[in-house]
Design a protein around this nucleic acid. Structure first.
Length: 366
DNA sequence: AAAGCGGGGTT
DNA sequence: AACCCAGCTTT
């Protein structure tokens, strides 16, 4: 085994953790499934935001086997509102892999762990160290920030070079007697003391060995260079009803908010008239005529990581242009990615982000 | 190496 | 309005 460097800040951080650690339901439970779920839910997400989802998830899918049996629609529905829905789909696939090919036992080594869907370098290290006590690092945004400051790393921590440089130091400083506690100590420390904007150096237990503090460059570290451009997208939305039923569309099985339900919409239309003809064409292909009311009933803006929706919602009434027939018959004749449902059934489906907020414009049916 | 993928709290 | 969060996958 490689010789381990154990600088004095490591036991100091562990001592801080022993006093200040957060009490979290998946912590110190020794259950790799619970740790796995919590780690995936935490990706790019604050702990406070995912906690209620975690509790609900464990009620719905308490074990690997229960989750493996669930449908994709069920897991996405349980994930609704949390974002990055591929996490839910991949978690289900990864768990199925473990049940089918690993005898239901989460792997104990990094190679097998990282082969599971949705499990990357960070999540593998987190699960292995926290659930099994394996000496594996878990390098996330907190760790990159903390080490950049502690060791004066001026490489871009979002780039490959910076991440590799820091990972090498983390591997060198990982205490093999308490790897799980150490990784979690870095998370809690990064969330409470060594925070992104203005680090609380006044209450930091390891300032005496911090490069950024000693050299007075805490305002320069870490270096993060990001270049995401947010594209503006105007969207006209039709809240279209046929009697007590609303017409909904399932987004395609690729791209943003894939396979989630939305009200019929037209992107990038530059006028009401263009939107009206777009919606008329959509429902026309289903056998409906449309009377759209030219009054905006709701206007809202929704920001994603790489685009921004400017939504204008209108009401409309549908007329069936085919032979007079029952609602049940019309429903069966619709393509798979369209449906007519009542307001009271809305809660049974996963809504495409901001479309869920438009449901409040629909009358309550008791 | 860069882009795609959500939503919400903080500054 | 910018920043950033217990990142991973696809291109």
């Amino acid at each position: 085994m490689k010789e381990m460097n154990n600088p004095k800040w490591v036991p100091q951080l562990l001592a801080w953790y022993d006093v200040n650690k957060r009490d979290l339901p998946w912590r110190d439970c020794g259950d790799p499934y619970k740790v796995w779920v919590s780690e995936v839910m935490s990706q790019q997400t604050r702990i406070e935001a995912m906690k209620p989802y975690y509790d609900n998830w464990m009620r719905l899918f308490p074990t690997l086997e229960e989750l493996a049996k669930a449908t994709e629609d069920e897991v996405v529905h349980a994930w609704q509102g949390l974002g990055y829905y591929s996490r839910a789909r991949n978690l289900r696939l990864g768990v199925q892999d473990v049940v089918n090919n690993y005898g239901g036992v989460v792997p104990h080594n990094r190679k097998d762990m990282e082969s599971l869907k949705g499990v990357g370098s960070y999540t593998a290290g987190a699960v292995l160290s926290m659930a099994y006590g394996e000496p594996e690092v878990a390098v996330d945004g907190n760790v990159l920030r903390i080490y950049a400051r502690l060791y004066g790393i001026f490489d871009d921590i979002l780039g490959t070079k910076g991440k590799k440089a820091i990972t090498a130091i983390v591997e060198d400083t990982l205490p093999h007697d308490r790897p799980g506690d150490f990784n979690q100590a870095l998370m809690d420390f990064g969330s409470a003391v060594c925070i992104p904007k203005t680090p609380r150096c006044g209450e930091c237990p390891i300032v005496n060995t911090c490069y950024a503090y000693q050299h007075n460059v805490t305002d320069q570290l870490p270096v993060r260079i990001k270049k995401t451009k947010v594209v503006d997208v105007p969207i006209f939305v039709g809240i279209l009803s046929y009697g007590d039923y609303y017409l909904l569309h399932k987004r395609p099985n690729r791209g943003l908010l894939r396979s989630m339900w939305e009200f019929p919409s037209v992107e990038n239309a530059d006028s009401y008239d263009a939107a009206e003809s777009g919606l008329t064409e959509l429902v026309g292909a289903l056998g409906f005529g449309l009377s759209l009311q030219p009054v905006i009933v709701k206007e809202l803006t929704h920001v994603f990581s790489h685009r921004k929706w400017f939504m204008k919602a209108f009401r409309g009434d549908l007329q069936y242009t085919g032979d007079h027939t029952s609602i049940e018959t019309i429903q069966t004749q619709l393509p798979k990615d369209w449906m007519l449902i009542k307001r009271e059934e809305f809660a049974d489906y996963a809504w495409a982000g901001p479309h869920g907020k438009l449901t409040e414009l629909c009358p309550i049916v008791e």
